[in-house]
């Protein structure tokens, strides 16, 4: 498996990671990513057909919580680090649906 420049640019955009506009700069990143993908691909050589996926490093099951209200009620704290807030709401550049 390998990726091309277009794919790298698209993934960067979807992940909101800023990358260079010009193809030459993206080329090296693409090469690096393909090297990683190739390396991971080597793992496929190991036969895991009889091994069940490891779901956790610790042998435990998902902890479930009771349906009780134990949190919330501090809107000032929630918006405290916001660059801009108004009436305890986050203020962001206008998003249009």
């Amino acid at each position: 498996m390998s990726v091309d420049i277009q794919t790298v640019r698209r993934i960067a955009k979807l992940a909101r990671i800023q990358v260079s506009e010009n193809d030459a700069d993206l080329e090296s990143m693409t090469t690096e990513l393909n090297a990683i993908l190739n390396w991971v691909e080597q793992l496929e050589e190991v036969d895991t057909s009889n091994v069940s996926p490891m779901k956790s490093a610790v042998e435990t099951s998902l902890f479930q919580r009771a349906d009780k209200v134990t949190d919330g009620g501090y809107p000032e704290k929630i918006v405290k680090n916001a660059p801009r807030a108004q009436d305890n709401m986050f203020v962001v550049p206008r998003v249009v649906e």
């Binding site: 919580r65 209200v69 134990t70 949190d71 919330g72 009620g73 809107p75 929630i78 305890n88």
Partner: peptide, 27 residues
């Protein structure tokens, strides 16, 4: 129709003030 959210202990009541029903998990 639960009292608390799916992955946090913040309440689900309708019509609360802005960000009243928010835990640090939800944020």
């Amino acid at each position: 129709a639960s009292n608390a959210k799916l992955f946090s202990g913040a309440p689900t009541t309708f019509g609360a003030g802005p960000n009243e029903n928010v835990s640090l998990v939800d944020a």
